[in-house]
Design a protein around this nucleic acid. Structure first.
Lengths: 115, 115
DNA sequence: TTGTTACTTAACTATATGCTTAACCAACAA
DNA sequence: TTGTTGGTTAAGCATATAGTTAAGTAACAA
C-alpha cells in the first residue's frame, strides 16, 4: 500500500496526454498493432512506442508480440479502477449534500458548514 | 475543438498527483480552507497553493476568498466529465466484445479480429 | 541472400512539473 | 499600531516528460 508510485498515479498520468487518450479511444474499438496505432500521429515511431509503454506500464493496455508485430489491446479492468476512484469521491460529495439538505430541512437553525 | 490544452488533459493531469488526489478526497467530505488542506502535507504552503491552482485551473475545484481565508470546494460536474470519458471507452470495448461473442456464436468460421 | 517491414534501443534535448526559500500584503486581534 | 494569521508573488532548481535522430535486430517476402 505504500508503494513508491501508485497505480492511480500511472493511470491518470497516462490518461493526461491527448495522444495516449486517442490511442485508448482507438483501442476501445478493438486491438491494433503498433504501426496501426502510430498511423494517425505526426510523430516518430519511437515516440509512439514510448506512449504505448506509458499505457502498458499503467496497466491500461496489454500487448503481445507474434512474429514481428506487437498487438495492443485495452485492459478494461484498469479503466474501471480509475473510473471507480472518481465515482467514489463524486458520490461521497453528493451524499454529503443530501445529508446537508436533510439537516436543513429538519432544523430551522443556521447550519455549521465546517465542523 | 482544436484548443491548445484540452479540459481532459488538465483534469487527468490534476488527478495524476497523489497530493492533489488526497485534496480531492478531503474535499469530497466538504469544503475546506487553504490551510486546512495544507495541514496533512509535509510541504510548504506555496507548494500546496500550486497544487490547488492546478485543481482549480482544471475545473475540478472552485474557490472564493472571504476576508483572508480562501475556501475551496469540489466541482462534481467536472469529475463527472472525466468519469464519463473513461466509461464511454470502457463500454465501447465491452459492447465490441459482446458483438464479437454474438458473431462467434452465429458462425462456425474463424472471425476477422481486425477489419 | 537480399531487401523490406515492424519494431527496438540508445543517446540527446527542450520544456514542464513539483518543489524550495524569501519577501510581501491584507485582514483581524490585542 | 504592532503582531499574527492566512495567503500570495517571485525566483530558482532538480527531476520528469515528450519528443527527436541514428543505429540496430529479427521476421517474412522475393
Amino acid at each position: 500500500m505504500l508503494n513508491q508510485q501508485s497505480n492511480l498515479d500511472l493511470m491518470f498520468q497516462a490518461l493526461a496526454d491527448p495522444t495516449r487518450r486517442a490511442m485508448i479511444d482507438r483501442l476501445s474499438r478493438g486491438p491494433a498493432s503498433v504501426s496501426e496505432l502510430a498511423k494517425p500521429f505526426a510523430m516518430s515511431l519511437p515516440a509512439v512506442v514510448q506512449h504505448l509503454q506509458a499505457l502498458e506500464h499503467s496497466g491500461l493496455v496489454t500487448s503481445q508480440k507474434v512474429g514481428r508485430v506487437r498487438t495492443v489491446q485495452i485492459q478494461p479492468d484498469t479503466l474501471s479502477l480509475a473510473e471507480q476512484w472518481i465515482n467514489d469521491r463524486r458520490t461521497a460529495w453528493s451524499r454529503r449534500l443530501d445529508r446537508l439538505g436533510d439537516f436543513l430541512a429538519e432544523t430551522a437553525d443556521e447550519p455549521e458548514i465546517e465542523t
